[in-house]
Design a protein around this nucleic acid. Structure first.
Lengths: 234, 234
DNA sequence: CGTTTGCTATGGTCTGACCATACTGTGGTC
DNA sequence: GACCACAGTATGGTCAGACCATAGCAAACG
């Protein structure tokens, strides 16, 4: 062989993706920076605008860019960092495909929740969001409304752990499981026990007692998912 | 107003996405089923093929469909369930954007690992993959090769927990952190201690002792990430 | 100085074409 | 009949070019 016939193994838009990712790393781009316009990017890379657009769609799906039409500093493809919606879509679709069972998602939730509570109690974070969510649940007039504030409470707990990845994961799990959560509340009927648990968790976090926080969360989840109690590790 | 001018708020490909997702739910499609060809789908939905293709790209990014060119039963867009690569891409890109810190990813890994070990010990799974990975590490001739089998070990442990979501998450975390893992092994130098830990974990899982499994994993991770030891909860 | 109006850059969509791939069926050959 | 070569065809992948909607921007105008 005298020459190298460049065998095309990757699709064009994958090349574009790799180029953009490389550029992010090389130029040290971060959230808030702008990417070149689609047409310009297409010309630079020697591909059609369609391929650039498909790459953009992928990046948008992954929560890495956000496209705005129009003109001006805020228009065009801007780098963002929003993994939440990507994770939510991922979980929702795979749940819909019956490729994941609710049990697996709930398990993940239990795990994150217990970890986050302990970590939050260790780091002594701001607990305003937690208290506010409890107040909201007190005033809830329907299971849906209760679950809404309950989700806010548990997401706030995850965020209080200081780990954005797990907080995003928590929010996605809750979003994917909203239906099951409402059913669980309806089945339970009385929510006063859940609220007692929430206050106990908040107290433990405020007191900076990781052990008590873990126990409080475990008790809470055992109440919410009685069938899973025997499986709770630790 | 006499008529309703349908305001277009969603982009066309998002409509297509919603339609496909609805069809998945309505027709009970699962992994292995085929979607209509792009051209036919475009005609059915009254949109251009470009929009269908962008929707396909999103679904492919989320690990929900896999497109094969050509003709025959295996060609076209087939529903799959491969959240691994989607999660890996997600984590890698957000790490590249400095939107996630390695610490956050490592924390998630610690959490999953401890949980998976306890769960695996409870369910008494097949441990052949774990033993094989340990053998592979024994024969490794470079840090990279060691890390490769180490990743296999820890992913096998996550899979042994029986939770596919967390197993996928674990694999993605390892893939995103491959570089750091190699550095850690190089820094550590001697891997015999790690191997002792691995054998202790395997023994605990085989004996069906969740408490010991958790302790063994905790000890292992404390050795691998000494700086994180004081933060390990429980 | 403020307002209006037209301009322009941007993403969003559509159309139609062509290519590469891989199965399918047909026909010939042994 | 079994096997193989070859044309046919359905599919995704890519490209080019056009047009639309949006939103900032700037010049003209009062």
């Amino acid at each position: 062989m005298t020459g190298w016939h460049p065998v095309k193994k990757t699709r064009t838009f994958e090349d574009v993706l790799a180029q953009i990712e490389h550029r992010i790393g090389a130029d040290g781009l971060t959230a808030g920076d702008r990417l070149p316009p689609e047409r310009q990017l297409a010309e630079q890379l020697g591909v059609s605008r369609s391929s650039v657009r498909e790459a953009m769609r992928v990046l948008e799906t992954l929560g890495v860019v956000s496209s705005q039409v129009g003109r001006g500093p805020d228009a065009g493809a801007v780098l963002v960092s929003r993994p939440d919606s990507a994770l939510t879509d991922l979980l929702r679709l795979h749940l819909g495909l019956a490729a994941l069972e609710p049990r697996e998602v709930i398990d993940a939730r239990l795990m994150i929740e217990r970890w986050a509570a302990a970590r939050a109690a260790t780091s002594r974070p701001d607990t305003a969001g937690l208290a506010e969510a409890i107040t909201g649940m007190d005033g809830a007039r329907s299971p849906e409304e209760f679950v809404e504030h309950d989700t806010a409470f548990h997401c706030a707990l995850a965020e209080a752990s200081g780990n954005r990845l797990l907080a995003a994961f928590m929010r996605s799990l809750r979003d994917s499981l909203g239906r099951y959560a409402v059913e669980a509340v309806v089945r339970l009927g009385d929510t006063s026990g859940l609220q007692d648990d929430h206050r106990r968790i908040l107290r433990a976090v405020r007191d900076g007692d990781p052990g008590e926080a873990t126990r409080a969360v475990t008790a809470h989840l055992a109440r919410a998912y009685p069938a899973l109690l025997p499986d709770l590790p630790g």
